[in-house]
């Protein structure tokens, strides 16, 4: 049984249809990437999974249970966390408080503290800045905090929306290395939305190509990297 399965999902913003029947499936432990141009529906797909933009038609199954009509907080409780585009750190909460918000639905305080230490070991700069308001962090540090905050929920599935956006190449590579590390060490399944298809296809296991609200291509990353159309449209070759 796949961890997450979307079956013919259609999402609308008012009368505008953003997703025109998306079907995809993610197995536990995978890193899946969703690539596509601006406005193709990548972020909408993530917001639909999280219940912020619920679908008008189609089914979403998480661990076999339907979640397409569940409230956002219910979906988080079931084990899906998102790092949204633009990081969206709470600017006036400290780094520690931002992390505590990530563990909002958890009650196991010793385990929460252990997870925080684990994340501090991945991103030592966050430990140094733990009493600083989130708004005073640099873009890269905010991205580290945003990922850490989402992981504080101990999700089974982590949705990442454009983690490399606006970051220096060196920082992007660090972030991607850690995404990989989290996937390997914690067995966290990852759905990665990324403009930088080159980077994304290098760490993911499989990928989907999204165009105008439809999935036009899918396959393992080696296939996609070799596909002429993908090369031309997304890899700039």
């Amino acid at each position: 049984m796949p961890l997450l399965e979307l079956d013919n999902v259609a999402t609308f913003y008012g009368s505008i249809q953003a997703l025109k029947g998306i079907s995809l499936s993610i197995a536990a432990g995978e890193i899946i990437t969703l690539i596509g141009a601006n406005g193709a529906g990548k972020s909408t797909t993530l917001m639909t999974i999280c219940g912020i933009a619920p679908p008008r038609a189609g089914r979403i199954l998480f661990r076999g249970a339907a979640i397409e009509a569940a409230e956002p907080h219910e979906i988080v409780r079931r084990g899906i966390s998102q790092v949204p585009e633009g990081r969206r750190i709470f600017p006036h909460l400290t780094v520690t408080e931002n992390l505590a918000m990530g563990a909002f639905l958890r009650k196991d305080s010793t385990e929460i503290a252990r997870d925080r230490e684990y994340l501090f070991s991945l991103f030592p700069i966050l430990k140094e800045r733990r009493h600083q308001p989130g708004g005073t962090l640099s873009g890269g540090e905010q991205q580290m905090l945003a990922i850490s905050r989402a992981l504080m929920a101990r999700p089974a599935l982590l949705l990442l929306d454009e983690p490399s956006l606006g970051l220096a190449p060196l920082v992007s590579r660090l972030i991607f290395r850690i995404i990989r590390q989290i996937n390997e060490e914690r067995r966290t399944t990852i759905l990665l939305v990324e403009q930088n298809a080159n980077l994304a296809l290098r760490i993911a296991h499989r990928g989907y190509v999204l165009e105008n609200g439809r999935i036009t291509l899918e396959g393992n990353c080696a296939e996609l990297l070799g596909n002429e159309e993908v090369k031309r449209a997304y890899l700039g070759m």
Partner: peptide
């Protein structure tokens, strides 16, 4: 803390449960 977070970014607070 949830109140402060909601005041700063309601959508993000929802995404965190």
């Amino acid at each position: 803390r949830a109140m402060r977070a909601t005041a700063q970014d309601r959508g993000m607070a929802m995404l965190l449960g």
